[in-house]
Design a protein around this nucleic acid. Structure first.
Lengths: 248, 248
DNA sequence: AAGTGGTCTAGACCACTAT
DNA sequence: TAGTGGTCTAGACCACTTT
């Protein structure tokens, strides 16, 4: 009953977040086990002296942290950890691009070519139409870790080539300064094995594992402007996630 | 000025979600470009005849959809697409485990062994202590697609072996019925290349690409109870995501 | 000083579930 | 019918940025 935890009104952590932490901790400690019903929202209001809206907000945070689910008219229930629809994040992207000065982009090739069937389809242009092929290596602390191959639609009319090059420059993409002319991008990660050529660029042995991140970027007219792949050395990139109650 | 879009009060879509959709659409259409400032919250209140809390909620949705960011005292700004801290989700997990009847789990090995150095470290037990080694194959529509290797701590006292086996059964894990005794799990995805043995089990050729999902599951005392790997055939699994304004 | 995002209240109403 | 989650209001106050 008396659990002494209370919401500090003059603290720097907002009330709804304090309540999130309290409930999270209780769930992590096994006070409420998977399948159990949490106290009703009105009970939480009384117990912690906060308004319904604040309680609701806390519950919403728990919901999109996948810790509880709610059944209208019935209650809020603690979920067990499930691997369904988990989302994984790749911290290495962050660290590498925050690590400026130690990360360099080297262009190893840039030429105008005629698009083949596959590229034409992805970029929604006529097969044989001109595209700009760019190959880059991303070097972190001396080690080549990402091999980027990209084709841009060659459209001399509107955005100039220089501009497009700038827009799709790796740093802009990752940091997201907000001046981009791109509206959205679709990304797909596949498991890959490095070819001899790719291994050479990435300074590792052929047949070693890698992540292949295929991307298509669209402009504000929903036209594809860029298609390509990031080949990430498998020994340098990992995806991480947590199921159930995370400690942070 | 007059853009005719209005919040329907007797509709089934809540007001805050309607506002999210309106703003999303305007951003997608280029009404507000990356870097632009959205109308202030009070302006949105007046324009769409909703209360501040409702506007705030809409903005919060846009924020965690990574479409805008806010600067207190300054405004709400449209973001360009960035690849920082993206989260990828694997639909195949969902579909495969929803596709019951067409998905079968076959146990190919289950024995008690003495843990080696590495397993002992992961499971926080003494090297040489007994563990239960389980090897499973997950078969979808006749094709073996996941090879699961797992070690469980052998603790005859508390949760019985049968119980643990049941708890960590694949279906239980993925579906997450909520009766689980597990508190949380840590998952790491690495790129991998199939060995000869693994390829045989998965009915494919050696050296083909795969995802290796390493997992450790903890009980409510924060003790590891299970450590292992899901080896997923690279030709059957992809991770997807969208950067920028998504259409759905 | 004026405007902006951010939090919070104390109620209200509705849709749904349990009994 | 009583209790539950879910949405929404019309204000309030605060911290911050802009001018």
């Amino acid at each position: 009953m008396d659990d002494q935890t209370d919401i500090k009104r003059r603290g720097f952590i907002p009330a709804y977040m304090q309540l999130v932490n309290i409930l999270k901790e209780q769930i992590a400690d096994g006070v409420y086990l998977p399948g159990d019903r949490l106290p009703s929202e009105s009970e939480l209001c009384k117990k912690y002296r906060v308004s319904p809206m604040t309680v609701r907000r806390s519950i919403n945070v728990l919901i999109d942290h996948r810790i509880v689910n709610t059944i209208q008219g019935s209650g809020t229930y603690v979920k067990g950890p499930d691997l369904n629809g988990l989302t994984f994040s790749m911290d290495e992207f962050n660290t590498i691009f925050t690590d400026r000065g130690n990360t360099k982009v080297k262009i190893i090739d840039a030429l105008i070519i005629k698009s083949d069937e596959r590229a034409a389809k992805k970029l929604q242009i006529e097969p044989g139409a001109k595209t700009i092929l760019i190959k880059r290596v991303l070097i972190n602390r001396g080690d080549p870790i990402i091999f980027h191959k990209e084709q841009l639609v060659y459209d001399p009319k509107s955005p100039v080539i220089e501009a497009e090059l700038e827009v799709t420059s790796l740093h802009g993409l990752f940091v997201g300064t907000g001046e981009s002319r791109l509206r959205k991008g679709n990304l797909v990660i596949e498991a890959a094995v490095l070819s001899k050529e790719e291994a050479e660029v990435l300074n590792t042995v052929p047949m070693s594992p890698a992540f292949c991140i295929e991307h298509i970027f669209f402009d504000f007219n929903d036209k594809p402007v860029s298609w390509g792949q990031f080949l990430c050395r498998g020994d340098r990139f990992k995806f991480k996630t947590t199921a159930g109650v995370s400690s942070n």
